[in-house]
Each structure stands twice: as structure tokens, then as C-alpha cells.
């Protein structure tokens, strides 16, 4: 099987400072990769480079596209990259307000990607929106409400629905559970795990919460100061951390 995403030697600098450097990994279809590290370790920079929001200074991000086969998304033209980011890619922001249109109803939010790829049938768009509200456990009766009338957890679930409606193959998630209370987090994680498994999605999840990667990720990368210090299977890294920083990270988790 060929990898869905092949990342080679990604580097991003902010002037003399390092955002992230020398990051390489392969992501296979259906695999979930977790990236953990403390604030400022470069994990969000890395994610933004991979998703095309930032232009990396060096390296390649080769994505196995449906029609053209493996293509370097760093050098691909902007229209192609933007097309990719609303069809085969999805990006779940930490703050739902960054990923949603707050002045547009829930149904319109979900339908936007469908309309962006050319769907012009109201009935079909509406049906897809209802279907996805159901899948992310939001009452269909709320379809015409604006996201501003939703709770934080519902907004996050709506953002996920809006992203997954076009059936992407790769989902980027930046702290998807950040800022939610634990019971809402648990429900969201449960939902995400179900969707990822059922749709066979590949995902890259950036988080500082080790519990999130324990639940969702197959593999783990630990970042510190812009570099990957340790990587491997999630359980292996968390249960038997080798690098000093990883050991510190694992031992810092509060036990209840």
C-alpha cells in the first residue's frame, strides 16, 4: 500500500527562530497520527504547513490525489491546493468560530462545501445537511439555527460535520477538544473515533492532551523546540517513553 501523505524534511522558520525543522513521516490510508508537545513546540506550525495554510521554507508534502496520483502540495498551484482543501482535505480548528460562518445557519454551514464543489440542488444539499447533523448528534430541528445559538460542544461537532460532508480522505485537527469540559470532550472523542473508523479517514491530530491521542491516534510524534524527539506506536510511546522529554510529558499528566 502506498502512503496517502508523505512528508519529507519540512522546515519553517520565523526569521532566525525555528518554527519546525526536519520533520519527515509517512501517513497511510486509514491511519491516525497524533502530534503532541507543549505550547510553542512547533506542532501547530507543522500542521499549518501540511495543510497549506503556511508555506514551508523547505521540504515536500506529497499527497496521493485521486486523479493525478502523488503530487507535492507545496509546489502545486494555488487553485489546485484550494480545491484540494475543500474536497479531499478537511481542517478542524481549535476554536469552532474560526472554522464556521457564524452568521449562516447550521444547514448553510454544512452545505457550503457541497455548493463550493458545484452542487446546485437545494433539496439534495438540505438532505445531506440533515444527514450530517444526525451523524454528529445534533437535533435536525436545529438546522436553521445559527451556530451562535449553539453550545461550544455543538459548535465543534457542527464544524466537524461541515468538514466531513464532502467525504475527505485526510483530516487535519488542531486541538479539536481544546476549551471543552471533560464530559463534552469525551462525547466528541467518541464521535470522532466512530467517524474516523467508519469512514476510513486518515487524520493528523495536534494536541497537548495525551488522553486524546491515546484514544484516537495509531501513531504518535513528540515534538520539542520544533523538532521531533520521539515517534512510534501510540501505546509504545506512552507506556515506554524513551526520550527524557517524553518521560517528563507522560509523568506530568495528572492522575485522578
Amino acid at each position: 500500500m502506498s502512503p496517502l501523505l508523505r512528508v519529507a524534511g519540512i522546515e519553517k522558520r520565523y526569521g532566525a527562530r525555528i518554527g519546525c525543522t526536519d520533520v519527515s513521516f509517512d501517513l497511510y490510508p486509514g491511519e491516525v497520527m497524533g502530534i503532541v508537545g507543549e505550547s510553542g513546540s512547533g506542532k501547530s506550525t507543522l500542521l499549518n504547513c501540511l495543510a497549506g495554510h503556511l508555506a514551508p521554507d523547505a521540504g515536500q508534502v506529497i499527497f496521493d490525489t485521486r486523479h493525478m496520483g502523488p503530487v507535492d502540495t507545496v509546489t502545486m498551484s494555488e487553485p489546485e491546493r484550494r480545491m484540494l482543501s475543500r474536497t479531499d482535505w478537511a481542517f478542524v480548528h481549535q476554536h469552532a468560530r474560526d472554522g464556521l460562518r457564524m452568521s449562516v445557519s447550521a444547514g448553510g454551514n454544512i452545505g457550503e462545501r457541497l455548493m463550493a464543489v458545484g452542487d446546485r440542488h437545494y433539496g439534495r444539499i438540505r438532505a445531506a445537511a440533515l444527514d450530517w447533523l444526525d451523524r454528529v448528534e445534533i437535533d435536525g430541528a436545529r438546522i436553521d439555527d445559527r451556530p451562535s445559538a449553539f453550545s461550544g460542544g455543538m459548535q465543534q461537532r457542527l464544524q466537524i460535520a461541515r468538514n466531513l460532508v464532502t467525504g475527505p480522505r485526510l483530516v487535519f485537527m488542531d486541538e479539536p477538544t481544546g476549551g471543552l469540559d471533560v464530559s463534552v470532550q469525551a462525547r466528541l472523542l467518541d464521535l470522532l473515533r466512530g467517524l474516523v473508523r467508519r469512514m476510513g479517514l486518515s487524520a493528523i491530530i495536534v494536541t497537548h492532551d495525551l488522553a486524546v491521542v491515546r484514544l484516537l491516534a495509531d501513531r504518535l510524534m513528540v515534538m520539542k523546540d520544533g523538532r521531533v524527539v520521539e515517534s512510534g506506536l501510540t501505546d509504545q510511546v506512552l507506556d515506554d517513553p524513551q526520550h527524557g522529554y517524553t518521560q517528563l510529558l507522560v509523568s506530568s499528566v495528572l492522575q485522578v
Binding site: R101, V104, S105, G107, M115, A116, V117, R120, Y122, I125
Partner: peptide
Amino acid sequence: EYGLMHVKLYEDIS
């Protein structure tokens, strides 16, 4: 990228 224009019309109908 004119999908957004249809979002406005969608909102009208809904």
C-alpha cells in the same frame, strides 16, 4: 470560487 454566493440563496430558501 462562487459557492458562497449560493450559501446566501440557500439561507433565503431555508
